[in-house]
């Protein structure tokens, strides 16, 4: 690991002042940063520890807007009773991620900033990684790409975005609050993670020195029906091969509102707006669900190693739709 200076910030202002220095990285739960520093992928000169910045802590799941301080741990948010009842997809996306230990350490803000699990990105013995060293190429395009994206990739990079929480937040039109040297701003989560295009080294809209301070979710009654379906290579403690967050609002047996976002299949959290539109006004039956699932995977660009993900993605969407429909029925009955 490269030597670094350590500073524990006493306030947001203090953090921003130190974060503006060359080579600085902010430290929250450390589950991505310390890991990548240990294997030489990230090499900051200074760590600005945010743990004492009180205004980044805490969360509130009541009211018209849910607000999650960036430093709230994945475990404490996943355990929130209100979130579990009113937004099961949000709680499940956290609970189905990582391990109990990592959920105690990792924060809901840092979760959105975690780096891809692409093994070529993580292994510095591979020279070609446009994300790690811009312009060096992409070893995954013709390499072992079983875990890689079939949606949103480019000829520069097909690494998946690993956050489950980001996918569930995307389904609910969440926003992120950002503080920086130039002041504060808020942006929708679906423009926070940026498409790779020519520059896969840039993953989020966060500018140097900025801090993600909070996550905001507009209250939504469809949240109660929501679910997060996640397909993994093993039953627990694994990243998604394919996942879907779905929420439904039914009126008179027909879909009034459908929200569908995909994970594990794409380079950014993937909102399936065309599939949502297809369902609107229709009843939920086998054919409408199959059509919507197929529409959700429109534009998929598979490679030999990950071609199975196109069909798997469809089935994951169908599974999530079925579960959300069941929850909507149970809600009506209650």
């Amino acid at each position: 690991m490269q030597p670094f200076a350590y500073h524990r910030a006493s306030s947001l202002e203090d953090a921003l002042r130190h974060g503006a220095m060359e080579g600085a990285s902010y430290l929250a739960g450390g589950t991505t940063l310390v890991d990548l520093m240990r294997i030489g992928v990230m090499r900051p000169d200074r760590l600005i520890d945010l743990r004492d910045v009180a205004e980044l802590r805490g969360f509130d799941t009541g009211g018209e807007t849910l607000r999650f301080g960036a430093l709230a741990s994945m475990a404490e948010v996943a355990d929130d009773i209100v979130l579990r009842q009113d937004y099961p997809a949000l709680a499940e996306s956290l609970l189905l991620a990582a391990s109990a230990q990592l959920r105690n350490m990792a924060t809901v803000g840092g979760n959105l900033l975690q780096r891809t699990r692409c093994m070529y990105f993580r292994d510095t013995r591979y020279q070609a990684c446009n994300k790690r060293s811009p312009g060096s190429g992409c070893a995954a395009l013709d390499g072992v790409n079983r875990q890689h994206a079939v949606l949103g990739g480019s000829e520069r990079c097909i690494a998946t975005m690993p956050s489950d929480w980001a996918v569930a937040l995307t389904a609910f039109d969440a926003a992120v609050e950002i503080a920086g040297p130039q002041g504060r701003r808020t942006m929708p989560i679906d423009s926070f993670h940026i498409s790779y295009g020519e520059h896969p080294e840039a993953e989020t809209a966060l500018r140097p020195g900025e801090i993600l301070t909070a996550i905001l979710v507009p209250a939504n009654r469809a949240g109660r029906t929501s679910c997060y379906a996640k397909v993994r290579d093993r039953e627990s403690f694994a990243f998604a091969i394919s996942s879907a967050a779905v929420a439904l609002r039914m009126e008179g047996g027909r879909v009034a509102e459908a929200r569908i976002a995909l994970g594990g299949l794409s380079t950014t959290p993937w909102r399936a707006t065309a599939a949502e539109a297809l369902l609107r006004g229709r009843s939920l039956d086998e054919s409408s669900m199959k059509e919507a699932a197929a529409r959700a995977m429109d534009g998929a660009d598979p490679r030999p190693g990950n071609a199975f993900k196109v069909e798997l993605g469809r089935r994951t969407v169908e599974d999530a739709l079925l579960r959300a429909a069941r929850r909507a029925e149970e809600g009506d009955a209650a």
């Binding site: 030597p3 200076a5 130190h18 080579g23 030489g40 200074r46 013995r125």
Partner: peptide, 27 residues
């Protein structure tokens, strides 16, 4: 701490300490 996993690692850069930070030895 072993550096064995990343033989490509560059030699450590000389970094001035943060104004009120710890580097490279923390007490």
């Amino acid at each position: 701490m072993s550096e064995a996993h990343h033989p490509a690692a560059a030699p450590p850069r000389a970094v001035p300490p943060a104004p009120d930070g710890d580097w490279p030895i923390a007490t």
